[in-house]
């Protein structure tokens, strides 16, 4: 991949570039967009197949996987899906996600603010503890969490699904980092006016923290909507299954004999739609979220 300017002896390279709007640069552009298009197809086409296949019959989906025209078009898969437990799972997912997200945003902001701004004995030690917790890989906690849920006696209840994932160290960390970045003067003014610490936090600091709160909301929504491991160990009652837990059972014969590809595609598609909506509406914040999550690394 040597540049065309290199063999050219002229020292004023940019000029050569401008003159060189010739064949080489056009072929380069062609290749560039070619590669880009290849990746775009690689990333978009699977979702197109998913959508189309959910309107196919099972033999059609199995035999003509790539075809974009269902032959015949059928909504059978969707009917099967809605007559299964899928609606229950969907409701459970909404309940759990709602509670986890609201709880996580509020409590993480609260703790993050305390660690960033309030002066109290033991703060430094708590922060060290938080950093240590961040280093614990989540997957090794499955058995420990189950043991505790069982011990406390809330296994197979909604609180078991919600409370253990309601507060996470990464969320506290993100909020702490953010609160440290906003000027202290505003709070001081409020404090001098005689506002209590909570009042200052609630009506002065939180409104300023909107970008961080939105980022955390998105991370929590995405995290709890997509969570699988915790829901596997927190319940074995089908009435408490969330989407991830319920749909995961599809592959192990949850729908009776045989591969029901159209139903599986419909199930996967429908559980993706809420994520897609949130993603499109808050796209800007997703970028920040990804990088906020990175800082903890």
């Amino acid at each position: 991949m040597s540049a065309p300017t290199k063999d050219d002896g002229t020292p004023v390279t940019p000029v050569v570039n401008a003159v060189g709007e010739n064949k080489t640069s056009r072929t380069k552009k062609f290749w560039f967009y070619g590669v880009l298009l290849f990746f775009a197809i690689l990333y978009v086409y699977p979702f197109v197949i998913q959508l189309v296949s959910s309107f196919k019959t099972n033999p059609d989906a199995t035999n003509n996987a790539l075809s974009l025209l269902p032959e015949p078009v059928t909504i059978n898969a969707w009917e099967v899906l809605f007559s299964s437990d899928y609606p229950t799972w969907f409701t459970n997912s909404i309940i759990v996600t709602l509670f986890v997200t609201v709880g996580r945003v509020f409590f993480c902001a609260l703790a993050g603010y305390a660690l960033a701004r309030l002066k109290f004995r033991g703060r430094a030690a708590l922060f060290t503890g938080l950093i240590a917790i961040l280093a614990v890989p989540g997957i090794v906690l499955l058995i420990p969490k189950f043991l505790m849920l069982n011990y406390v006696g809330i296994y197979n209840t909604y609180p078991a699904l919600i409370v253990p994932i309601m507060i996470d160290a990464a969320g506290i960390f993100i909020m702490k980092q953010f609160f440290e970045s906003i000027p202290e003067s505003v709070e001081e003014a409020a404090r001098i006016d005689g506002a209590s610490t909570f009042r200052t936090f609630w009506s002065v600091v939180l409104p300023m923290a909107k970008p961080a709160l939105i980022t955390l909301t998105i991370l929590s929504f995405q995290g709890s909507w997509n969570e699988l491991g915790h829901f596997i160990i927190a319940t074995n009652d089908p009435n408490l299954y969330t989407l991830t837990r319920g749909v995961a059972g599809f592959t192990t014969g949850g729908l009776g004999a045989g591969n029901q590809y159209p139903v599986a595609m419909a199930a996967a598609l429908l559980m993706t739609i809420p994520t897609a909506i949130v993603f499109i509406v808050f796209q800007r914040y997703f970028t920040q979220g990804a990088n906020a999550g990175a800082e903890k690394g």
Partner: peptide, 16 residues
């Protein structure tokens, strides 16, 4: 940002 479960179902189908 999509659930690993949804992606897994999709890939089970793609790699069938």
């Amino acid at each position: 940002v999509v659930s690993s479960v949804a992606i897994s179902l999709l890939f089970l189908f793609l790699f069938a």
